[in-house]
Design a protein around this nucleic acid. Structure first.
Lengths: 331, 331
DNA sequence: TTGTATGCGTTATCAG
DNA sequence: CTGATAACGCATACAA
């Protein structure tokens, strides 16, 4: 049972203007049409309030001008930022965004990919850590932060470089013993390289360090960090004077724990996070941080997924990060 | 130039299964079909990897199972929250979300409404303050926080009640002189009632108050508040011991200003915001706040916009707010 | 340059 | 219960 009839069609416009259907189509699509005809058609279009029907066009051309974006959620500020800039980048290319949230439900991820295929979207941009993700045939797929295979381009920040940057920065700021904290999935995702970069830089510059990585699948990730921190308290003092934390979100939580334990930030411990989250569009960052270039990531995703020669596209694009202070370091 | 052919169609499945096209359609749509036929069809579907084509269906049925959501951005955490829960609510109803961001560009708003009409979406959920918004015919439209007319349902929090709640709470917390700060558009939007509720409650309970509302169109809203605060400093002390601020975002900025002026929060001034923003999915609120029931708002939007009898739907739905402490009040 | 006619993949009507 | 067939709105190849 269709809704009330959804408005005039090209045939109606053609009849009103006294021209052929094809002529209307050509006017609508901005093709070469004699001036007299064009004006008649345009008059009819405005008179009838004609809006072209995307479904008809999509059926005919097999192009929907729509890209599906698959994200865990839109609540986490980093994902919100990504969605925001991807939307802007898509708009520049005259594409629409079909937003699909997985809520970290792996079944839903494959379900959403199916849905995208049914919708015949022109491309899919996905941020997902599902190891068994079914790669769709026939639809260009680009992933963020997760390398699947050479045939699925992956866009990521320079996570390794970010780790190096954080180590050097902490040393410059006077730290003498540091630690790296992260929650990570058990998969070989790009963000894991934050650790690698940090470790290799610490070794290189001779900065003593420890590493604590908790896999997402663990039962009580929060209390694991509690334990780690408590284990490194020596008569009221934390054994570290610098922390590099895998995300700003975790950094924020760790800092709250520390303050609860009587450790001052940044006086006793300096903390650097990762992502570059700012609250409420303020200039200030929530914590001192390695900033991901979100607008550039978004642009790269869109340009890649819409690339005319998708098969010739680079399979890994790494974008540079920067350091920004945010009140959890002394400077 | 269409993409490589987009996969098998119902006709292919029918041929493979040795049945009629219509039978395939009936199987796909879960209608009554003889078991033998159903099995043959399903075997063919999995063998060919058939996925139905939404454009074909939409063209035929005039239903896209898609709702357009129009938001200023997805960066602001409140909008991110809304998008998040609207997406979840739509999923429950088996609908997809076409996300459209206006970036506060009024021309873009009407442009996006046009786009939604072209896409023949089943409904539009819009958070926009554009006074000249062109209301689309034929497509159910629901707005958040902005009442247009009786024919356009508006979903909003109990802004008036929230103002009342804030005033009472501040008094309960021992405040003796309070102020209300807000930036607002010049339009009669729902959030303006936060002021009304606050003022009427202050009058009723005999709490001295002042009000400072700055319209969004003003040149330097930030410095306007600076001036207001400085004007109310009396030898190092702020003239107020309680503030109710129109949004958590603004509250956050005001608090930073205050701390910069040597005023302590919550020791010298207690501050209550509005919205209920939590950072990084933590339990704690960023500031003490009047919490908007975002999941319920989202549900109400979706239920309303998809209502079978859209013309009989209430034109204003007000949802209850709650108070939550967040460290900027003494308790 | 413009008109005509076909088919995109689907649902729905009508016969069988 | 199933098969055949006509539309849905549009773009396009072809004819004029």
């Amino acid at each position: 049972m269709p809704r009330e009839h959804s408005g005039p069609t090209m045939a109606d416009v053609a009849r009103e203007a006294g021209v052929a259907l094809g002529t209307v189509s050509r006017v609508v699509n901005g093709e070469q049409v004699g001036d007299a005809f064009r004006e008649k058609v345009q008059a009819a279009i405005t008179k009838l309030g004609y809006k072209y029907n995307s479904s008809g066009r999509a059926l005919r051309t097999d192009e929907t001008n729509t890209v599906a974006v698959i994200m865990p959620n839109c609540d986490n500020p980093f994902f919100g930022l990504l969605v925001n800039y991807i939307c802007i980048a898509l708009r520049k290319r005259k594409r629409r965004m079909l937003l699909c949230l997985t809520e970290n439900d792996r079944d839903r991820e494959t379900e959403l990919i199916q849905m995208a295929q049914q919708n015949r979207v022109d491309g899919i941009i996905a941020l997902t850590y599902n190891p068994k993700l079914t790669i769709p045939e026939n639809i260009p797929l680009v992933t963020i932060d997760r390398f699947f295979s050479l045939s699925v381009p992956c866009i990521a920040s320079d996570n390794f470089g970010g780790g190096v940057l954080a180590a050097r920065k902490l040393q410059m700021l006077g730290c003498t013993r540091v630690a790296f904290l992260q929650t990570a999935s058990e998969l070989p995702t790009e963000p894991k390289k934050r650790r690698d970069g940090f470790v290799s830089a610490c070794v290189e510059i001779g900065l003593p360090f420890e590493v604590k990585v908790i896999t997402t699948e663990e039962k009580e990730p929060a209390s694991e960090f509690d334990l780690f921190l408590q284990d490194h308290m020596e008569n009221g003092h934390l054994a570290f004077d610098g922390l590099f934390v895998g995300t700003d979100s975790l950094a924020w939580q760790i800092i709250k724990k520390l303050r609860g334990m009587g450790v001052r930030v940044p006086e006793d411990v300096q903390v650097i996070g990762f992502d570059g989250i700012r609250l409420f569009g303020c200039q200030e960052y929530v914590v001192s941080t390695i900033v991901q270039p979100v607008p550039e990531i978004a642009e790269a995703c869109v340009n890649t997924v819409l690339s005319r020669h998708f098969s010739n596209v680079p399979s890994l694009i790494i974008l540079p990060v920067t350091y920004a202070r945010g009140g959890t370091t002394r400077e």
